[in-house]
């Protein structure tokens, strides 16, 4: 018997707040998504690898969560999770966007870790990082893995090394904000589509539709199996 009875869930698994470089505080972001009828979102503020110059710069302008405020970050998300469920019947998941930025786009990668429970040092090498996320039963999503419009955040490392890392990755972003990456479907990789929300105008962007029960375990299973998944461009 299938214990994950189907509903159509409007989801966004890539959202930033003022904990990193988002323009709105956590509560406002949760309300924007609740007011617009979303069913499941993940808060994924940047957790920046500070081994390089670019990473150090991000930390100096407080565009990253740190080990020091990580528990507070999780606690606040937990509070919002309860509030959002009571008020909007919306699931809020805690996540991070592990951010490995380098001057070269070919060395840069952003990785969404969804349903994270404990701090993961972003400086870990890729394999260790993925294994730690798996140990926490978190989802691993490759964020904007291919060329995007504009030059500010190209992150091609995972795509260029997909033969080595695809086995660890639960899904790849096939759509991010207003971009689409058809290479993901050409490789038949599991996919999701997200907003990469930083400010209110980003609400008009790609979303994932999941057809599963409104429960965290079913949502994660649905993404991993990736058969009952669709994407939608969301407009208010």
């Amino acid at each position: 018997m299938n214990d994950c009875k189907e509903e159509e869930l409007l989801c966004d698994f890539h959202i930033h707040t003022t904990y990193s470089d988002g323009k709105l505080p956590l509560r406002n972001v949760v309300d924007i998504y609740g007011q617009t009828g979303h069913d499941c979102i993940a808060i994924t503020d940047h957790l920046v690898d500070k081994t390089g110059l670019v990473g150090k710069a991000a930390h100096s302008i407080k565009a990253s969560i740190t080990e020091n405020n990580f528990n507070e970050y999780l606690e606040n998300i937990a509070y919002e999770t309860k509030r959002a469920l009571d008020k909007y019947n919306m699931i809020v998941l805690a996540g991070v966007e592990i951010t490995k930025n380098h001057l070269s786009k070919n060395k840069s990668a952003h990785i969404l870790i969804i349903d994270i429970k404990k701090f993961i040092p972003p400086e870990l090498d890729y394999k260790k990082l993925f294994l730690e996320a798996k140990r926490q039963e978190a989802l691993i999503i490759a964020a904007h893995p291919y060329h995007v419009l504009g030059l500010d955040k190209e992150t091609l490392y995972l795509w260029n090394n997909r033969n080595r890392y695809a086995k660890y990755i639960d899904a790849w972003e096939i759509g991010c904000n207003k971009d689409l990456f058809n290479v993901v479907s050409l490789e038949s990789y599991p996919f999701v589509a997200n907003s990469d929300f930083h400010k209110p105008s980003h609400i008009h962007s790609w979303r994932t539709l999941l057809y599963c029960k409104r429960e965290v375990k079913c949502i994660k299973k649905c993404i991993k199996e990736n058969t009952r998944v669709a994407i939608k461009f969301f407009r208010k």
């Binding site: 609740g34 007011q35 617009t36 009828g37 909007y88 407009r235 208010k236």
Partner: peptide
């Protein structure tokens, strides 16, 4: 028609 600000509330 469409989602106004604060529609749910």
């Amino acid at each position: 028609k469409g989602i106004d600000d604060n529609l749910f509330d």
